[in-house]
Amino acid sequence: MSATHHHEHGHGHHGHEHDHRGHDHRGHAHGAGNERRVLIALWLTGGFMIVEAAGGILSGSLALIADAGHMLTDTGALALAWIAVRLAKRPADDERSYGWHRAEILAAFLNGVAMLALSAWIIFEAAMRLAEPSPVLGGPMLVVAIGGLAVNILSFFMLHGAGDSLNLKGAALHVLGDLLGSVAAIAAAIVILFTGFMPIDPMLSVLVALLILRSAWKVTRDSAHILMEGTPHGLDPDAIAADLVKTVAGVADVHHVHAWSLTPGQSLVTLHAHLVDGADAHAALSGIKARLGSHFGIGHATVQIEQGACADGHHNDCGEKQH
């Protein structure tokens, strides 16, 4: 048992090294430029978030405060994107054999929970203001909201040219969503300036809060799923087992399939493969790993090879060939 397990981890370790070499190669080509673009967008968004929050407090506009809250979600998303680019450079160590990638997921979960609380507060405050309307200074509100729109457009174009990483695309979508919040605040300011209809401010702040709520719920749900070692979306353990039996020569049965995610883009699998009598264990192992990589996009797999007769058909009792 021990010899087999050691051998299999040797294969897994080799695959792990191969994956990281590929990652580093791409990082040299794009990492520095991406990091700089994300950092600029982060400072733009985070800096103007403070201006917008202050403008909301001074003008009495809940829509501006809500939009500042949405910019806070953008700042969190950009910070996560920047952290991910930075952490990808850090090698695995004895305490973190998979490296630092999970730090991004933990930060995303905390960010999502904070945003859920913020959106709930905005909706509560809007209800209070609808019951008892308070005056809003339309002029300062309009100036700050237009500034927020300009910053969001600039940040979006910074991120749009920063590569095709899923992480960066997610950050760009956050900023694009915030454009709607800025437009809502501008619309509320124009209505107040021309009609004096104050309730439009809390009404549109609820719209922005719902935008925050939608993205915060998705981030919280997805990050919690990864932290709970949930099966990656689109991967079915039973389908993996059936596919390997069908496509890899010498594989009679696949069981104990466990799949989870390190990050949204990195899936890991462990499984037991029982071979037909006389099958080449090394060829089967190579075939399984190749199929997992090409068909399922799984770069990290630990495969336990089992050979010999099974007692009463129970695979846990299968004898293992040490090689």
Rank of each mutant, 00 (worst) to 15 (best):
L39N: 06
T231H: 12
L44R: 12
L173Y: 01
S205N: 02
I190S: 04
I240R: 01
H30W: 07
A187N: 11
G138Y: 15
D243T: 15
S261Y: 03
V206E: 00
L44Y: 15
A54D: 00
D317I: 02
A81C: 03
G319L: 07
H274S: 02
M198D: 01
P133I: 10
V219M: 10
H274Y: 05
G60Y: 06
P140D: 11
A239S: 03
V143G: 08
M49G: 05
V191R: 08
E306F: 05
T270S: 14
H300Q: 09
V206S: 03
R214M: 13
A224I: 15
R90I: 15
L142E: 08
L210A: 05
G319T: 14
A114H: 03
I146P: 02
R90K: 10
P264A: 06
K246H: 07
F156M: 15
A242K: 04
K246S: 05
G15S: 12
H30A: 13
L118P: 01
H295S: 00
V269W: 05
H23T: 05
H174F: 05
G177H: 03
L285G: 10
L176C: 08
S134C: 02
G69H: 09
E306G: 00
V175D: 03
A92H: 15
R86H: 06
H101G: 06
H300F: 11
I153Y: 06
V51I: 04
I226A: 10
I200T: 11
I122P: 04
D280M: 14
A63T: 14
D222A: 14
V175S: 04
W217N: 01
L176K: 13
M141N: 04
R96Y: 06
G55M: 05
F156H: 12
L204K: 02
I200V: 11
M228N: 04
F48L: 01
L227P: 03
G46Y: 12
G293N: 06
L268C: 10
A114K: 10
I226V: 10
T231C: 03
M228S: 11
A224W: 13
S2C: 04
N111V: 12
I190V: 15
I153V: 15
A79C: 13
L154S: 12
A209N: 08
D280N: 13
H5A: 07
A259F: 12
D312R: 13
T75F: 05
W260V: 08
L78I: 05
I298R: 15
H255T: 00
A290H: 09
P140H: 07
G177P: 11
R26M: 01
A150C: 07
R129S: 00
I105E: 05
A77Q: 08
D243Y: 07
H11M: 07
F124K: 02
L106M: 11
V276C: 06
L42W: 11
R21I: 01
D94Q: 01
L213G: 04
A281F: 01
A185R: 13
G12T: 08
L118Y: 14
S294V: 02
H9T: 10
H295V: 03
G265M: 07
V219C: 09
A283G: 08
H295D: 04
A252N: 04
V144Q: 10
L64W: 11
E35M: 04
L285C: 11
A66I: 02
M141R: 08
D94F: 04
A120F: 03
